[in-house]
Amino acid sequence: MPDSFYWINEPQQWQRNDAALRVVTDENTDFWRKTWYGFERFSGHIFATDVDNDFTFQVRLRAEFTELYDQAGIMFMSDSQHWLKAGIEFNDGAPAIGSVLTLENSDWATGIFTGNPRDFWLRLTRKGDSLRLQYSSDAQHWPLLRLCHFPHGSAKVGVMCCTPERRGLVVDFQDITLTPPLDKALHDLS
């Protein structure tokens, strides 16, 4: 994990070594802007680094999602009103895979996760003004989760977690890598 990572909304409890980051979420932390609920929150935990060019960011996550809206995954952002988060989020009684794209207002796309939600991978590739978001249960097969437009420019990419309804979700982020962009065809799932 590069030394250039830093906290946005640093949690009270966390540990880091060369290979992993462990975070315990603070109480009532969240990311959301306006849609449906009307409120704005940017209090979740982000461990990120600055990016100016195209890249691929990848991470393995381990956590026990048990309470409503428990979540952990990737965060890509230019500021508190323009961001993409993705990962596992506990809702409707089960862990689901999903993403939220926020360009002043948040949207939420979610679906059933067929793998083990306690141990999974995420990958984000930025190419110009496009973001390609993928997930994996085995680090071999990488289905597309989202393809979206995001204005090109200076930004931050990293990992995020939050617990809007409680505190104490323990999340292990492992195998964090930031590399030049994987230049694979859109339907190449390797």
Rank of each mutant, 00 (worst) to 15 (best):
K156D: 00
A139K: 00
W142E: 03
L68Q: 11
Y37S: 14
A72S: 11
Y135A: 04
G93W: 08
L84E: 06
E104W: 01
T56D: 08
G158F: 07
V100L: 13
T49V: 11
L133D: 02
V24T: 15
R22D: 12
T35N: 13
F31V: 07
M1R: 10
D54P: 02
V51Y: 02
E67W: 00
S137T: 14
D52E: 14
S99G: 04
A48R: 06
D3H: 11
C148D: 07
R132L: 10
T35S: 11
C162M: 11
L147E: 08
R60N: 11
W36S: 15
F57E: 05
P181W: 07
V171N: 10
T56Q: 09
L21W: 02
Y69H: 07
Q134E: 07
F31R: 09
V51D: 03
E10I: 14
K34R: 13
E40A: 15
A94I: 10
F76K: 01
L84Q: 08
R60L: 04
D138K: 05
P164I: 08
K127H: 11
G87M: 05
S106Y: 02
R126T: 02
A185L: 14
Q134L: 07
L21F: 04
V51C: 13
W83E: 04
M160E: 06
D119V: 02
F90E: 01
K85Y: 07
S43K: 08
F57T: 03
F47D: 02
R16H: 03
P180I: 12
R60K: 13
Q140H: 09
R41L: 11
E27Q: 11
S190W: 00
R16G: 08
S4M: 06
H187E: 04
V157K: 03
Y37D: 07
V170Y: 06
D30C: 12
F173W: 04
R16K: 15
C161S: 15
P180M: 09
P143V: 10
Q81P: 00
I97R: 03
G93I: 06
A155K: 12
L84T: 10
E89S: 01
A19N: 06
R16F: 08
R62S: 14
L122A: 08
I74T: 12
F65V: 09
P117H: 09
R167F: 05
M1W: 05
D172W: 08
V170E: 13
D50V: 05
C162W: 02
S137G: 12
E10D: 01
P181D: 12
D79A: 10
G158Q: 04
R62I: 08
D18H: 05
E104C: 07
V159L: 05
V171R: 06
I8N: 09
L21C: 05
E89F: 01
D119L: 09
S154V: 06
A96E: 12
F120G: 03
T35C: 06
F120M: 08
G153R: 09
I46M: 14
Q58M: 12
D18I: 10
I88H: 03
A72P: 01
E67A: 10
Q134V: 11
F150T: 06
D54T: 05
C162T: 07
T125I: 12
F65E: 04
A72N: 04
V157H: 05
I88N: 01
D52W: 01
E89I: 06
F173N: 04
L124F: 07
R118D: 14
R167A: 15
W14H: 15
M160Q: 07
D172G: 00
L61Q: 09
R41Q: 11
F47Y: 15
R126N: 09
G128L: 05
